[in-house]
Nucleic acid binder design. Structure first.
Length: 203
DNA sequence: TTCCGGATGCGCT
DNA sequence: GCGCATCCGGAAA
């Protein structure tokens, strides 16, 4: 992990919607006792704090779980839901609880490890969803409150910005949140096979 | 397409 | 304390 150069703190000081786009193509790296695994971020969603009905921090809700969202940009916000761990990048200034959810990555290193962690499923299903990528990379609640500039969980420079196109659309899985449901705060690398599948909703 | 695991938080009793 | 909902995924039906 020594030869990985984490993006500097300054990277995280851009506005949340900008950060959500800037994170696309960056390399997410996790080291565990089993070994190192990494992938390029190909899908993100922005959660815009107190005014965003879909955010855990809506209305400045401040609990043990959301506490880190009020902390320094670049902090790791992990939470569990329905048995899965999801990972977010805290953004905005201290006291403004905004974050970017990492929804999908493209596997780069540690593929044999990922295959085992993902129970032998085909490669395109290792990391094409927020709960899947944490399992494949070995991201857990132990990462909560750490910072993406320090091991064992890093965000590093990846693809050059001009090498791929960015698509935009509404977020996934937040159907019961009023108008916030339709905000186009999901970003992904166009035509990338590792972007998560849109969950069919049954209205 | 339907069901449900199981941590977290909330609103109510 | 209890019931319910949730930024999901896998297996059953």
């Amino acid at each position: 992990m020594e030869h990985y150069q984490a993006l500097p703190q300054a990277f995280y000081s851009q506005p949340t919607l900008e950060l959500a786009k800037s994170l696309l193509g960056c390399l997410l790296v996790k080291e565990t006792e089993e070994g190192l695994a990494s992938g390029y971020i190909v899908e993100t969603e922005a959660y815009m704090g107190p005014e965003d009905r879909a955010a855990h921090s809506f209305g400045n809700r401040r609990t043990k779980r959301t506490e880190i969202m009020f902390g320094q940009a670049g902090s790791v916000y992990t939470y569990t839901m329905h048995t899965h761990t999801l990972v977010n990048v805290v953004s905005s200034e201290i006291g403004r609880p905004e974050a970017v959810l990492i929804r999908a990555v493209e596997p780069l290193e540690g593929k044999s490890l990922m295959e085992i962690r993902r129970a032998g499923r085909p490669q395109f299903e290792w990391t094409n969803g927020p709960g899947k990528l944490t399992k494949a990379l070995g991201i857990t609640m132990d990462d909560y409150g750490n910072h993406f500039t320090s091991p064992p969980l890093l965000i590093c420079e990846g693809w050059t910005k001009s090498s791929f196109a960015i698509s935009t659309g509404p977020r996934i899985g937040i159907d019961n949140t009023g108008e916030a449901r339709d905000y186009p705060w999901r970003f992904w690398a166009s035509n990338n096979p590792y972007v998560s599948k849109i969950r069919r909703k049954m209205n």
